[in-house]
């Protein structure tokens, strides 16, 4: 449910870091709490965000939720499949349901994030 190789934020985003880039999505817990996701608003490639900025929105049948970026960075890729298939986030939150890739501005921010064990312990 919470892969060991990822880092997690308290706002239920995950990041998979490779070199100076990181792929970001929302956790299993978040997608489960939201329920059926029916709409995703994505940023554009080149958009720049500071840590904890809202970088997009996910909407389930009942709710509208901001996405908060776990590290500062510049968007290098967005998952365009989510435009027509937002349910990928429910089905595969750590795989096909990824949301954006960013180039990290300050990799030291990663130290502020939780590992899988600490994240899981923070739930309920």
């Amino acid at each position: 449910m919470y892969p060991k190789e990822l880092k997690y934020s308290k706002d239920h985003e995950w990041i998979r870091v490779e070199g100076n880039k990181g792929v970001i999505g929302i956790t299993h817990y978040a997608q489960h709490q939201l329920g059926d996701i029916v709409f995703v608003e994505l940023p554009e490639v080149g958009d720049e965000f500071a840590v904890n900025d809202s970088f997009g929105v996910v909407e389930s049948v009942k709710s509208v939720s901001d996405l908060y970026i776990p590290v500062s960075g510049v968007v290098t890729k967005i998952n365009e499949d989510l435009i027509d298939s937002p349910e990928l986030i429910n089905e595969d939150p750590y795989g096909n349901g990824w949301i954006v890739e960013v180039e990290l501005t300050d990799s030291s921010e990663l130290d502020q994030l939780l590992d899988a064990g600490a994240y899981e312990a923070s739930l309920d």
Binding site: G35, D36, V38, S60, V61, K62
Partner: peptide, 19 residues
């Protein structure tokens, strides 16, 4: 999945709203 609906504890969903 129980929620507070106008002061009542009621299920908002079981398997999923769309299903």
């Amino acid at each position: 999945k129980m929620v507070d609906f106008g002061g009542w504890a009621l299920p908002v969903q079981f398997s999923g709203i769309i299903e």
